[in-house]
Design a binder for these strands. Sequence first.
DNA 1: TCAATATTTCTAGAACAATAGAAATATGAA
DNA 2: TTCATATTTCTATTGTTCTAGAAATATTGA
Lengths: 128, 128
Amino acid sequence: MNTENALSAFAALSQETRLQIFRLLVEYGGSGAPAGTLGERLSVPANTLSFHLSHLSRAGLVQAERRGRSIIYRADFTFFTALIRFMAENCCRSDVAQVRDDAQSGCAVIELAACCAPATLTPQGDKI
Amino acid sequence: MNTENALSAFAALSQETRLQIFRLLVEYGGSGAPAGTLGERLSVPANTLSFHLSHLSRAGLVQAERRGRSIIYRADFTFFTALIRFMAENCCRSDVAQVRDDAQSGCAVIELAACCAPATLTPQGDKI
DNA sequence: TCAATATTTCTAGAACAATAGAAATATGAA
DNA sequence: TTCATATTTCTATTGTTCTAGAAATATTGA
């Protein structure tokens, strides 16, 4: 995950229909759902849906796989958690959102401070 | 944090200059920085910067406070961590990103699963 | 009061994104 | 083959966002 990836992911998620599509795909989990089902559930015409799905796909948030006549879309959870991690690590402060890898479980753990007002620091990182 | 907040936050963060501004404000932490300093550091004309700052402000990502002739901008860390939390809780799965409140430290803790492929579930939540 | 500084608001043009009809493509089934 | 189904691509239109010049506003200091 880099800045460019994050920018296009934010752009993809900033549109109401696309955020709905993504959240619906999250519900469907690893099995995913065909485009038609998504369009039906969200009442979006097939061509408009296709436009948004390709946007999500280009951004890396979803994966597509043809199965017969249908194309199955899946939320890419690896990408999405990488985005969350990028936000905590690269768009925040370690005293507000601390990221560590838990070797035992293999999980990445993000601790969000209770009190989110960070210490006052100079841009050079010196505490005042 | 609700869907509407998240949508406008994503829109605000999806523009390169605005993401740069936000990350620069993160560096300045609780003391923030005046608009002029940001514009100078990013080589963005004052009026263009003002447009982006008001976008970030409307979205809730930054706070503004006049101090003399300058207006000091600060990243809103409370809002930003709420956004991260919203993403984990409302745009992901509990088997991929689990959120819990640690009563002892007062922190919210997000555990990102090592293996991000979730179980295959029906939209009704039944495991297959 | 006047000038200087910091920032915003107004404005208009250029670039980009969203929508949906129509046509095209890919697949499977008769 | 031919037809039906699922989805995408093409196209045009409409709406939105970005940029930066010019003018306006707010604050301070002389």
